[in-house]
Design a protein around this nucleic acid. Structure first.
Length: 366
DNA sequence: GTATGCTTTCGGC
DNA sequence: TTACGGCCGAAAGCATAC
């Protein structure tokens, strides 16, 4: 039977949530921004609505640059409020989950799904299925989204991307090749600036050229696993399964921009104070322990360095590892030629505490 | 050589 | 002219054990 895989992507998600909350801004360029707090407008644009995109604004663009592009266009700048988008995301994903065989969320605003069983592998039925999901999201949350359907994850994702915004594109198996071949390789998941450069050196610019390329050349430039993935994706034959979203995250991190650059570990840790307690709170809320802690530093040239330490036994608190964290920042500071611009802390090797009684339950019985 | 586990970097949104 | 966040998961890199 045909597999029928879908990819759903909420259009310009953060900015669209803001438009839903306050529709009068819809006609204007809307920028959801991360203000770093270092100077008046330091920070980047996280998401922009299409009105702003038409005027040249992009995700990741410095706020001051975006403002320059929007002079006289009455832009609306809104600080990013993560919790709000998390809540909306959860409601939308539940709507989708209720309609499909399996849902695999891959980001706050996107997910893969499998509807092979629901549709009996019939692509003719699949379109109305996707339509129903779109209508349901629009009616209950007033959000538009884009959906792509195809025979593999890679095809579904490329299809949703091609249909943006508010689109629905169904790529039937017979038309997979003609859909994929002319696409630029840079549209493929896994092809960022580095891989794009490597492919350019091999004169591979389209997905069709990628499919027809010599595997050995690809492997040499990109490594075995990426080469294997890319050639299967390019031929529309990647057979990766849609796996149910994992219950637990595999890592948690908090990262901040420093008010002033430093390489002093004590200073870095002091400025990180709130972030550490924040992370601790998230650990408690998720009810997980960790075994590995990492110090993260982003240098003045925006390159990233990390140092990590793994403990024998699971840790419940971040503050309990403060001396280790300090030591990691000391190592970073002395191994590095430039100052820190941003610093962060990450915990990984997470383990659920579910079904494990905590000491406090014994000490303070209900 | 292969499996395994930890550390670091990369890519995506 | 430059300008510059905060997360996540996966892969690469490296060391060790067999």
């Amino acid at each position: 039977m045909n597999r029928i895989i879908g990819h759903i992507d909420l259009d310009y998600f953060f900015a669209q949530v803001e438009e839903v909350e306050n529709p009068v801004i819809k006609e204007r360029p809307v920028l959801v921004c991360v203000f770093s707090g270092r100077t008046e407008d330091s920070g980047v644009v996280s998401t922009a609505n299409y009105r702003a995109r038409e005027l040249g604004v992009r995700s990741g663009m410095p706020i001051v640059l975006a403002k320059k592009k929007l002079e006289g266009k009455e832009p609306v700048l809104i600080p990013l409020e993560r919790g709000k988008y998390d809540a909306m995301s959860e409601r939308v994903m539940q709507i989708v989950a209720d309609e499909v065989d399996v849902l695999q969320q891959t980001g706050i605003d996107e997910a893969f799904f499998d509807i092979t069983k629901k549709t009996n592998g019939d692509f003719a039925i699949s379109r109305s299925f996707a339509d129903r999901i779109k209508k349901s999201i629009l009616e209950s949350e007033h959000l538009t989204c884009s959906i792509g359907l195809g025979r593999s994850k890679a095809v579904a994702k490329l299809a949703s991307d091609s249909s943006k915004p508010a689109g629905l594109l169904v790529i039937e198996p017979e038309s997979t090749e003609s859909f994929l071949n002319p696409l630029p390789v840079t549209k493929l998941y896994g092809v960022g600036p580095k891989a794009a450069q490597a492919l350019e050196e091999l004169k591979i610019r389209t997905v069709g050229e990628l499919k027809a390329s010599q595997f050995q050349d690809l492997e040499k430039k990109l490594g075995r696993s990426l080469a294997i993935y890319l050639q299967s994706a390019a031929s529309g034959t990647d057979d990766e399964a849609v796996l149910p979203t994992r219950e637990m995250p595999s890592q948690l991190s908090r990262i901040i921009t420093l008010k002033r650059n430093t390489r002093d570990p004590v200073d870095a840790l002091a400025q990180l104070g709130n972030a550490v307690s924040d992370l601790e709170e998230r650990l408690t809320k998720q009810n997980v322990t960790y075994r590995t802690i990492s110090a993260i530093a982003i240098l003045t040239d925006l390159s990233t360095r990390t140092k990590s330490k793994t403990f024998e036994t699971p840790m419940r608190t971040v503050s309990g590892a403060e001396s280790s964290l300090l030591a990691l920042f000391e190592e970073l500071g002395s191994s590095v030629e430039k100052e820190f611009r941003r610093v962060g802390v990450r915990v990984s090797d997470l383990e659920s505490n579910e079904n494990q009684s905590s000491l406090s339950e014994f000490l303070t019985p209900a």
